[in-house]
């Protein structure tokens, strides 16, 4: 039941983009087409989960015992950067079909603050390893949900005569704001 609440909380109540402001650059940048959004969403779920798990192990086994907590930021970003590299090479060699669908999104992810953000949140909330895995999958899924919904709306808005100054990024941001407004519906749940 606790895990159920953790999942609902991460996807809906405290959605990583719409309530916690993380990962906005790729959220606005890759939400022009639904197909791209789905690919990016899967890539984020995949990398965020691996990154959160590995950084959890690094923190608990390497940084914390040696009193190097202050190096968290630098250690985590290096882990994530090399992880993304490694995943890219691995997928290219071993699972070409997956690489073809996710590959182009992987380099985008090193600078996606949602991935680093999820890893840091898991530390600040003092999650256990299992909680970390569950939370990072759910947060990634929340990112994907928001991304796909925004992409589907933006595809529709392409056919609308929006005032010229609002076209493009401003519209995407305002639409994200209205989505975040609708997500207030979940306030008070899973708390």
């Amino acid at each position: 039941m606790d895990y159920f609440l953790l999942v609902i909380g991460a996807i809906f109540v405290n959605n990583i983009v719409l309530a916690q402001y993380l990962g906005n650059c790729p959220f606005i940048g890759t939400s022009k087409e639904t197909g791209v959004a789905i690919g990016m969403g899967f890539a984020v779920v995949f990398v965020a989960t691996m990154a959160a798990t590995i950084t959890w192990l690094v923190q608990k086994n390497l940084l914390a015992p040696n009193d190097l907590g202050y190096l968290q930021t630098i250690a985590f970003i290096l882990v994530i950067a090399s992880l993304v590299q490694f995943v890219e090479i691995f997928l290219k060699k071993m699972v070409p079909p997956l690489y073809n669908s996710l590959g182009i999104f992987l380099p985008l992810i090193t600078t996606n603050c949602a991935v680093l953000g999820i890893a840091i949140i898991c530390q600040r909330e003092e999650f256990t390893l299992v909680q970390t895995v569950v939370y990072s999958i759910a947060s990634g899924a929340g990112f994907m949900l928001a991304l796909v919904v925004l992409a589907s709306i933006r595809e529709r808005l392409d056919m609308v005569r929006i005032p010229i100054a609002l076209r493009g990024t401003p519209m995407a941001l305002i639409m994200a704001g209205l989505m975040s407004l609708a997500f207030f519906a979940f306030k008070g749940m899973a708390a």
Binding site: L18, A19, Y21, L166, T169, P170, M171, A172, L173, I174, A176, G177, L178, S180, L181, F184
Partner: peptide, 9 residues
């Protein structure tokens, strides 16, 4: 959060 997005937009 909604105000942040809308304002920036």
């Amino acid at each position: 959060a909604p105000g942040a997005f809308v304002c920036l937009g």
